[in-house]
Amino acid sequence: MRSFFCGSLLCLGALLGSGCEWTEFTAVSTPPPGKIAELDDGDRRVEIGERVALAIECSNSTGPCRDVVASSDDPDCLRVYPAYVDYLVAAYENGRYEGMRQASVFVLTGQHAGKTRLRFQTNAGSATFDVTVHEDVN
């Protein structure tokens, strides 16, 4: 959401769809009962439990994110994997519908309790999340 508003402010002249970019992320899985796996796209925060996995979908002004480079500052704390998903999402180029493209999904795994950062570089901007991996107390 934050990136959307920033993008809107910075791209007032982009009503025709030229150059106005935003990137957003949505959780597409739920944690197991009693465990934590949450993504707050507005504040760019992720809260996840140790040994818990969370799938998130990346989309931007062109549809599903493309050319994504995802990385964790501390893979011993949090890892990020590309995922293959079998569903399609509408894609756009310069405001024009370009057909359907495979969704862009990543899986995060909480490895060990701690704090780190998760970074995405996409075809339409970048995003950085502050990540807290919570200790699993059973």
Partner: peptide, 22 residues
């Protein structure tokens, strides 16, 4: 004892699915 996600991965390293195992 505990819970642990188990990833199902393609040969290329993409996650095809996952499940939490207790």
């Amino acid at each position: 004892e505990g819970v642990c996600a188990v990833l199902l991965c393609s040969p290329a390293g993409q996650v095809l699915d996952f499940i939490h195992v207790w």
